[in-house]
């Protein structure tokens, strides 16, 4: 936790304590920790002079943020319109079967988090699955299993 808090100080310094950069700071904290721990938000509130209620409002407003710990590997399935008509619901079924997780859930060993997203802008590949930033278009059941199995 001390590591988290000292990281926060660095991030705040990087944005010169500018309140308007709050969302950017939260994005960096989310990326580093894979979630937004409450003590970290309390420290942000204190250092930036922003009420904690406002920080929680922002943290729960945007999909990119999580107030609960997430897995080391993020698996996202796009459910945007184009992917939807190309079979995204079926892809999601295959992914939930493989991971044994429902969207929004994190595995008990904190290895995987499954999310749904709306439109990544590569619709010609749809339906799209993203694992740790790597895009997979129209993955077969076998490919899904292989990609998941390769995550350490």
């Amino acid at each position: 936790m001390t590591k988290n808090l000292s990281n926060v100080n660095q991030i705040i310094a990087k944005y010169q304590g500018d309140q308007s950069a709050l969302i950017q700071m939260l994005l960096e904290i989310q990326r580093e920790n894979r979630w937004l721990p409450k003590p970290v938000l309390a420290r942000l509130s204190q250092k930036l002079g922003i009420p904690i209620s406002q920080i929680y409002h922002i943290a729960t407003f945007y999909k990119a943020f999580s107030l609960i710990p997430q897995g080391r590997h993020t698996v996202s399935v796009c459910l945007g319109t184009a992917c939807h008509v190309r079979g995204a619901p079926r892809l999601l079924d295959r992914v939930t079967d493989t991971l044994k997780l429902n969207p929004g859930e994190t595995s008990v060993d904190y290895k995987f988090t499954l999310k749904t997203v709306n439109c990544l802008g590569c619709c010609a590949l749809g339906p799209v699955m993203v694992v740790d930033g790597e895009y997979y278009g129209k993955p077969s059941a076998k490919e899904i299993e292989k990609v998941i199995a390769n995550c350490d």
């Binding site: 500018d18 309140q19 308007s20 950069a21 709050l22 969302i23 939260l26 994005l27 922003i50 406002q54 409002h57 922002i58 407003f61 945007y62 999909k63 990119a64 943020f65 997203v117 709306n118």
Partner: peptide
């Protein structure tokens, strides 16, 4: 940070100000 509504002009500007 993942909010379609923030693409509306005034919403986008609120976001740039660090608000919701």
């Amino acid at each position: 940070a993942g909010a379609f509504v923030s693409g509306e002009s005034s919403a986008l500007m609120n976001a740039i100000e660090g608000k919701v």
